[in-house]
Amino acid sequence: MSRKRRLAFFGSPAWAVPVLEALAREHDVALVVTQPDKPRGRGLETQPSPVAARAEELGLAVAKPRRLRKDPEIAGQLCALGLDAAVVAAYGQIIPEALLQIPRYGFLNIHPSLLPKYRGAAPVNWALINGESETGVSIMRLDAGMDTGPVFIQERTAIAPDETAVELSERLRDRGVELLLDVLERLETARPEPQEGEASYAPLLEKEDGRVRWSDPARKVYARHRGVQPWPGSWFEHRGKRVKVLEMKPAKGAGAPGEVLEVGSEGVRVATGESAVELITVQPEGKRPMPATAWARGHAVATGAPLGGG
């Protein structure tokens, strides 16, 4: 029979919702801490985070402090709950050291990398962009550093050749939930070990990270494309207009980087620094998504023409 733990949960985006749901099924989630409501959608109406919305549906208490470090009430709230542990999954704020000491067994975090590799906010994205063949998920105890705490358990997994950051992050999360539940079951005896090996960092992506680098080999262009999903996405500039690349795949061919090799029935084949890629679906600035072939023909992009983007 599983041990029912008294927990607080810290999370915000849709990615974290399945983690909350699993904890609510198996344990007593006494408080959900999430980011404040923000304007969203076309009408910019103020809406709760996905975690807040799901927590309210589950009948769980919710707190939405603007700044954990400056909130005078959150520490008192947590102290009054008699927590066994707190769980963090993509919360969006640094947890102050004073709060880390409140739960009996501290704060546990699902981190989708093989720590100490890819500490930081975007580990899955950078693993793909950098062409890693494998990655993993770690269950760690938070300390005052940036993902520097000791690790309870981690598991390796191969990265599939066409897997995007969205798909990989969800797969790592789902396995991470299983590992997290196992650690929660054995909190009294679980002994996290200090991280070993060379650390690397995975900062938040910037818009420029999505720019297609035609001079890179095709494998790197495609790896970056998979890694920058869903934001900022792949894009290049052509005749002063930005064009998003929604779908692409590696292809054969050779030419000057950025040179259009073929406007075919299935897509637009473009040379890279080594081999080529095929653009399948694009979205011109201010337009709806469309087949890359239709975009090319509508903009008189012919074989031999250079595409912008670097």
Rank of each mutant, 00 (worst) to 15 (best):
K252E: 14
P48G: 15
D143N: 15
V177S: 02
G76V: 00
S200G: 15
I280Q: 13
S169G: 13
R69I: 00
P284I: 06
K117E: 15
P291E: 06
G309T: 14
S200Q: 13
A90I: 11
A294M: 02
S169P: 09
A292Q: 09
A53P: 08
L142T: 04
L68R: 08
E26H: 15
A294T: 11
R54I: 01
Q47D: 01
A251S: 15
R242T: 13
R104I: 00
I102M: 03
P116T: 09
V62M: 08
E193N: 04
P50K: 08
L31G: 05
S113W: 06
D182W: 02
L172E: 14
H299T: 09
V166D: 11
A305T: 04
R191H: 02
G106K: 03
D71T: 04
A305C: 08
Y91S: 07
L23N: 01
G197E: 10
T157V: 02
P96S: 04
A53G: 08
L83C: 14
S275I: 00
P48Q: 09
P306E: 09
K38N: 03
L180Q: 08
E155H: 11
G267L: 00
P72Y: 10
P13I: 09
E285A: 02
P103Q: 00
L184H: 04
E178R: 11
E56A: 14
L184G: 00
P250I: 07
V243T: 05
P39I: 03
Y105R: 05
R288F: 08
E274F: 07
M290A: 00
D174W: 10
E178F: 00
Y222R: 07
V29P: 06
G310L: 13
M290Q: 14
A61M: 01
Q77D: 12
S2H: 12
L180S: 14
A63E: 11
E198P: 05
H238W: 13
Y91L: 04
H299C: 07
P103V: 00
P250H: 04
P306T: 03
R175K: 12
E193T: 12
A121Q: 13
L279Q: 01
E155I: 03
G309F: 13
K117H: 13
V282N: 04
A305Y: 05
P257G: 03
A296N: 08
I159W: 12
G11Y: 15
E278I: 14
G304P: 11
G240S: 11
L307T: 08
E208Q: 15
H299G: 06
L58C: 14
L23P: 10
K64A: 14
Q35Y: 03
K4A: 13
A98V: 06
E208G: 14
R66G: 01
Q154W: 05
K287Y: 12
P194G: 13
L205S: 03
V88R: 09
A52C: 09
S265I: 01
P36L: 08
S113N: 07
H111I: 08
D216Y: 10
V301R: 03
S215A: 09
R3Y: 10
A160P: 06
D182E: 11
P13Y: 14
L142E: 09
N130M: 06
R119W: 10
E208K: 15
V301H: 06
L142G: 04
Y118K: 01
